[in-house]
């Protein structure tokens, strides 16, 4: 039922670099802390809108936060 995603992300590392807690970032992008944890662990693929909000929260382009392997 649950298919693994090939998308990986560096949100946790960036968040810790920025000194932000999960609760801080979750509140900033308008999701629950549990959803942010699931995104960080690759257990939930965020919508494009949330992905852009996360990127904006760090002032970075999407590609530096989310990676997809080459063919």
């Amino acid at each position: 039922m649950v298919k693994p995603t090939l998308v990986t992300n560096t949100i946790r590392a960036r968040r810790e670099e920025a000194g932000m807690t999960q609760a801080d970032l979750a509140a900033r992008i308008g999701v629950t802390r549990q959803t942010l944890i699931a995104i960080e662990q690759g257990k939930y693929s965020p919508t494009l809108e949330i992905a852009f909000q996360i990127a904006r929260a760090f002032g970075m382009p999407l590609e530096s936060l989310f990676q997809y392997p080459e063919d």
Binding site: M1, V2, K3, T5, A38, Q41, K43, Y44, S45
Partner: peptide, 12 residues
């Protein structure tokens, strides 16, 4: 069960 598994194991 599907909901609980999705919350615990993930939904991607």
């Amino acid at each position: 069960i599907a909901r609980v598994v999705a919350y615990r194991r993930g939904l991607v």
